[in-house]
Amino acid sequence: MSDWFPEPARREIERHAGFSLVDVFDELPSTSDHALANLAAYSQRLPALVVARKQTKGRGRGTRSWFAGDGALTFTAMLGEKDTPIATHHWPRCSLIAGVAMCQTLEALTQQDTFQLKWPNDVFLNGRKVCGILVEKRDAAEPVLCIGIGVNVNNSLEDAPADVQQKAIALTDVTGEQHFLPEILLGFLTRFQALCTQNVDALTDLLPYFQSHCLLTGRTIETRQAQQTIAGECRGIDAAGALLVDTPTGQRQIVSGEIIRW
């Protein structure tokens, strides 16, 4: 086990977060790609976790990539039907739950009050992206929920190109500290599990927090669903997790798609 992720930390995550397997790597092209490539094996030991300190070919939504340098926290959690109280047909709401869980985890760790959520689940700090989340449902012996997350933690972006610094930030750039990555991981996993239990039927309990942290509320945004483009003023989300957009023809509920301007 690596120094950055000592064996006692792995055992603590298995015990307190209830994971059957925590697979730790110093570097991977992508934790999600590794998880999916070995899904048949991992599905025999759910819930399972793949963790890496650095990934070189991380995946975002669509064709986007997520590069995470040395000192980042990147991981993919694999959950079966028995590992979350959220029914399989409601698994898409786990995307928003994951975003809130990570936002709350980072707030508690850093005591910063400038974290925000960009629908559905990107986490921003001081107006710049600090965490990306990709939730996918795959089928092995049973349906598997794969939650891939990359957090800029100790991988400072102070020396990154100006265009990168304008868009992204790391925790250490704000706190001036080096953070213990397993602590963040365990904090997220336990908060995610608690939020799933609290929001089994709807996102009602989660709604006030998301609304108060919504990066897009009050902004003019443009979304794209398939070939359809919708533009208007964002009004937050509803209890189903849909993005609310006031358009010239009335309020629209956006349940999926990409935000292309904001």
Rank of each mutant, 00 (worst) to 15 (best):
E12A: 13
S65H: 09
V50C: 01
S32K: 00
D246M: 11
S30R: 04
R128N: 09
L39Q: 03
A72L: 03
A231L: 09
A226D: 12
E107Y: 04
V174E: 08
T247E: 05
T247Y: 05
I133E: 04
D83M: 06
H213Q: 13
A98C: 09
F19V: 11
A40D: 11
D33E: 15
Q111H: 13
R15Y: 09
A202D: 15
E136A: 03
N199F: 02
Q178C: 06
Q178R: 10
S95N: 13
H16P: 06
A202S: 15
A72W: 03
R252N: 07
A194T: 13
A87P: 14
D159V: 10
K129D: 08
L243I: 06
V144Q: 08
I169T: 11
R11N: 13
D3Q: 12
S20C: 10
G187T: 04
A37T: 05
G69K: 04
G60Y: 00
E107L: 02
I86Y: 02
E222D: 10
L216Q: 02
N126H: 14
G236F: 07
R224S: 07
A68R: 01
L216C: 01
D159K: 14
A240W: 10
A194E: 15
A170W: 04
D33Q: 15
A108M: 09
I149Y: 02
F19N: 06
A52N: 00
Q104G: 05
F210P: 04
R235N: 13
L185M: 12
S30V: 01
D26S: 12
V245N: 00
G58M: 05
A108E: 15
R59K: 15
Q228Y: 10
Y209H: 14
V255S: 14
D122M: 08
D33N: 14
D238R: 05
V255K: 14
I169Y: 00
F25S: 04
T114A: 13
T88Q: 14
G99L: 03
L244C: 06
V22D: 06
H34D: 03
R93M: 13
D139Q: 14
L215S: 12
I86K: 02
E81R: 12
D113A: 11
K167N: 11
C234I: 04
Q178Y: 03
S156H: 09
E136C: 03
C94N: 12
V153C: 04
E142T: 14
Q227G: 10
I237T: 06
V255I: 13
V164I: 15
N199I: 01
